[in-house]
Simulated scan of single mutants.
Amino acid sequence: MDLELTDEQRELKSTVARLLRTEYDAAAREEILRSDKGWSQEKWETFAELGLLGLPFSEEYDGADMGFGEVAVVMEEFGRALVLEPYLSTVVLGGGLVDAAGTAQQKQDILPAVITGEMLLAFAAYEPTGRYDLTAPATTATEAADGYTITGEKSAVLGAADAHTFIVSAAADGGVGLFLVDASAQGVAVDGRVQADGIRTGSVTFADTPATRLGTGDASATIERVVDTANAALAAEAVGAMEASLTMTAEYLKTREQFGAPIGANQVLQHRAAEAYATLEGAKSMALYAKLAVTGEQSAADGEGDSKSRHRDVLAAKLIIDDASREISQESIQMHGGIGMTMEYPIGHYAKRLTVIPRTFDDADTVSQELASLGGLIEPQAAELG
């Protein structure tokens, strides 16, 4: 199995990295962060022009007909620059759900507008009383004369304030259904929030709100698959952010002087930096493992190819990457000393993002419990004695 990037992926990586170096430095990001929207419409349009919003979608809908491998490349570069635009919520989550569950007509109505940057999507699934459980929503869908009505409350909805369309999970027909809700529809109320890392989120309430069903039948398996893909995308983003943090820290150790010598001459700091880089390499391997899991390559190699193995592998990768995010973000702050705690210095912003990523779709306790219920990454086998 070839684990290297393809020529097309290397070119994509180079293009995105060059764009972000020139147009998305720390000063530019700070200006975007302080704006009313908290992200840049101009940058979003640039991403659309480069084709980044259409990478995983079929040419039938004006997409690039590529896949998650290319999305992971983009997410890693976005992690290095701490990009604030709603790529995860609109392309990976929203677009992924429409692509996986929607009818041909729904895809035609939505995906081209997503690809051109004209439509923003938000996945409304998590609930105040449900913690990270997506299998039993309290939000209900009721059949009406011209479709459905939705009633319920959703929390931690990424991109809630700016979404044009919500994709809402709700109890329907004894299972979980997905429904399209216009953000301007009657009965929709959005309470916008800002996460510690600056990313916009919010709570959304639906009160007898008109809705259209996305696809047909129970959507539980589709939701799990798309959230697995989103977790793999976050793994790639975390790797980019961790690598940028350590690069910045190493440069600081070389240039910050005390008692007439760079602090990097201190052997203890050298050891701590070396351990952090070893942790980063492990995280890179697990991000690759998650990518292979959602693209099917890992499952095919194992001879499994089922949803259980994909979900298990992504959870295992997430557990290690989340731990690495905590370790590297804290070590980077520690090695910077007091300046690392100031808002004016970029390293603190990386620490914030690396603190939020592990809690975006679940947390360490939830992941550990679920992974254990699946039998762990390596299923136990009884030893033959004698």
Rank of each mutant, 00 (worst) to 15 (best):
G376K: 04
Y345M: 14
P380M: 14
A372K: 10
E370D: 14
P380T: 13
L374M: 11
T360F: 04
D365Q: 14
Q334W: 14
Y345A: 08
G337Y: 05
D362R: 09
E331K: 00
M341Q: 12
Q381A: 12
V367E: 05
D363T: 00
H336S: 05
K352N: 13
P380C: 15
G376C: 06
M335F: 07
Q381K: 13
V356K: 08
E379S: 14
Q369A: 12
P346E: 04
I333T: 06
K352P: 13
I357A: 06
R353N: 09
Q330D: 05
S373E: 11
P380I: 15
L354P: 02
Q369Y: 10
S329I: 02
G375L: 08
Y345E: 06
A364H: 06
L371M: 04
D363H: 00
G376P: 00
E370I: 07
H349C: 06
Y345L: 08
L374C: 07
A351W: 01
G376N: 07
H349A: 08
M343F: 13
Q334P: 10
I339A: 08
P380H: 12
L374S: 07
V367L: 08
S329L: 01
E331I: 11
S329K: 01
I339C: 06
I333A: 02
I347F: 01
P380F: 15
S329F: 03
M335V: 05
Q334H: 13
G348R: 08
E331Q: 11
E344L: 14
G348N: 10
L354T: 05
E370H: 09
E370A: 11
G338S: 15
I378W: 10
S329A: 06
A382W: 14
R353I: 11
H336K: 02
I357D: 01
T342L: 15
V356Y: 04
S373F: 13
I378D: 10
P346S: 04
T355C: 10
G348S: 12
H336Y: 09
S329P: 04
S329H: 02
A382N: 12
G338I: 15
V356I: 12
P358L: 07
Y350D: 03
Q369T: 13
G340N: 00
A382E: 15
P358T: 03
M335H: 02
H336I: 00
A372N: 15
G348H: 07
A382K: 15
D363A: 09
V367K: 02
M335R: 01
T366K: 03
I357Y: 02
